[in-house]
């Protein structure tokens, strides 16, 4: 069955500025199971785009397509096109290491390396060949400042990352992702393991980061999507049901399925 895409309808209210990603008729399969069905959307640059939907709707899979994190899963296959900087990132010839430098990822649970705070942030730049203590120190400080963590850790950079609280660890992971100067930051439920205070800090940070980065965030938490994102996409059973400016989607959704999901009448 060919899934009909509705690029014009779903994208008509997304701003016209050159997008970070152009997703065209993207489908994704785990073996025979089709988990994303012909998704077409533009993800705007320097904005926060939230992907929401019930469990199993394909939102995390969608995020993983954007930096090809699905590659090692047996039977996983993406079709269609995802354009970033004039390249189709689904092209098998693409340099995946270079892609992941451009498109960083922050996961649900903070996953710092068993290293010092400094070495966690310096890890990526070192892998990409940055050498020299002064240069690394500069990059580490900039990334920690961008992640709003510098003031809390500047006097204990040599301490283990595990000495930090959960919220600080998550911001450290954000700093680690930012250290390689990506264009895009993908966040997969980045606050689901955090308390409300730590969540508030991350949400504030996400909004600030969008001034310099494109952020795509997957969240179960509707209110988080409403608070942090500029645009929201609603996925259901792998289909992009509605994609609109967040304020619009949360106050007057066009599709009855979005309405049902937002009001909890969803079955």
């Amino acid at each position: 069955m060919v899934t009909k895409t509705r690029p014009v309808e779903v994208n008509q209210r997304i701003e016209a500025e050159a997008p970070a990603f152009r997703v065209r008729n993207l489908s994704f399969f785990y073996g025979r199971e089709k988990v994303l069905k012909g998704i077409t959307m533009d993800i705007p640059r320097h904005r926060v785009t939230a992907i929401m939907g019930p469990s199993g709707c394909g939102k995390s899979t969608f995020l993983r397509v954007l930096n090809r994190l699905y590659e090692r899963i047996p039977g996983a296959k993406a079709t269609g096109e995802v354009w970033l900087d004039g390249e189709n990132i689904l092209d098998p010839r693409l340099d995946v290491v270079a892609l992941r430098r451009k498109v960083g990822m922050v996961f649900q649970k903070p996953n710092p390396f068993p290293k010092s705070i400094f070495d966690n942030v310096a890890y990526g730049p070192r892998i990409h060949g940055v050498r020299g203590r002064r240069k690394l120190s500069f990059i580490v400080e900039r990334a920690l400042r961008q992640a709003a963590l510098w003031d809390e850790v500047k006097d204990k950079l040599k301490r283990s990352a595990f000495d930090l609280s959960g919220g600080q660890q998550q911001r450290l992971c954000i700093a680690r992702a930012l250290a390689v100067e990506p264009q895009v930051l993908l966040m997969d439920e980045p606050t689901s393991a955090l308390d409300p205070a730590a969540t508030a800090k991350i949400e504030e940070l996400v909004r600030t980061l969008s001034q310099g980065f494109t952020v795509v965030i997957v969240t179960h938490n509707l209110q988080q999507a409403a608070r942090v994102s500029h645009h929201t996409a609603f996925l259901l059973s792998g289909e992009l049901v509605e994609y609109a400016p967040t304020e619009e989607l949360f106050t007057r959704p066009k599709d009855p399925r979005t309405e049902d999901y937002l009001t909890g009448r969803f079955s």
Partner: peptide, 9 residues
Amino acid sequence: QQPAASDLR
């Protein structure tokens, strides 16, 4: 209860 959509309206 953070209403949304028609509930919020």
